[in-house]
């Protein structure tokens, strides 16, 4: 084991050797990104109070717990399906199997985005857009930022599916999939923070 996330193993030769630096570099980037999210959380906490809400709707008025639960489950499942795709790559079970599980992950990612977009539309519909209050600005700064990351992850999956088809499972494709895997699991980690701090702690206030 030489880097965070799943390791390809010695039998992958060149890809395994290159992975060490590439994956480590990407992991450092994710740690930098972690600070961005961490600060957004801190800002959210400082604004989730009556002053920040400025007489506008609060967490209880705008959050839909059922929908959040569905999103959480979808994202958690997508972490598992990505893990299965990584395992298929590690154990060289063939391009088709990897693509299949990546496809499932992509579908789950899009499903997550769909539910999230529906929630956002509902919030705007009830007058809880970002311009309503500081609290809602903090919400709209944090949660859609995660959504943007998931969207980027979905685009990345599509690009990787194309590259797997055009190039085959060459070393650079494998190391990119390793990094994509880290990214995807990282987003699920951030979501744990979001559903706990933003939604659950918010609603229980």
């Amino acid at each position: 084991m030489r880097h965070p996330g799943i390791n390809l193993g010695e039998h992958h030769g060149e890809a395994h050797d290159q992975a060490e630096t590439l994956v480590f570099g990407f992991w450092v980037f994710l740690m930098s990104d972690l600070i961005i999210f961490g600060l957004m959380f801190a800002i959210y906490v400082t604004m989730a109070n009556p002053v920040g809400m400025a007489g506008g709707p609060g967490p209880k008025d705008v959050f839909d717990l059922t929908s959040v639960f569905i999103q959480t489950m979808i994202l958690l499942t997508s972490s598992l399906t990505f893990g299965i795709a990584s395992l298929a790559m590690r154990h060289e079970q063939g391009r088709g199997r990897i693509a299949l599980w990546l496809g499932v992950t992509l579908a789950l990612g899009l499903g997550f985005l769909g539910f999230e977009a529906r929630d956002f539309a509902n919030m705007i519909g009830m007058g809880a857009g970002p311009s309503r209050s500081g609290f809602l600005s903090a919400f709209w700064g944090l949660v859609p930022l995660h959504g943007l990351h998931v969207s980027a992850g979905c685009i990345w999956i599509v690009v990787m599916l194309i590259q797997m088809r055009t190039f085959g499972m060459i070393p650079i494709v494998k190391t990119r999939l390793l990094r994509l895997g880290l990214f995807w699991h990282f987003l699920d980690l951030i979501w744990v923070g979001i559903f706990t701090i933003v939604f659950l702690a918010g609603i229980s206030a």
């Binding site: 809400m53 400025a54 970002p130 311009s131 309503r132 209050s133 500081g134 903090a138």
Partner: peptide, 28 residues
């Protein structure tokens, strides 16, 4: 990252009518 966050929030205030740092509507 804190600089990126601060500048982009200020940009959100200026371009998208957010209220992170405004005087009104709960900005701080």
């Amino acid at each position: 990252p804190p600089l990126t966050v601060a500048t982009l929030m200020l940009a959100a205030d200026r371009y998208l009518d957010f209220h992170f740092f405004t005087n009104d509507l709960g900005g701080n």
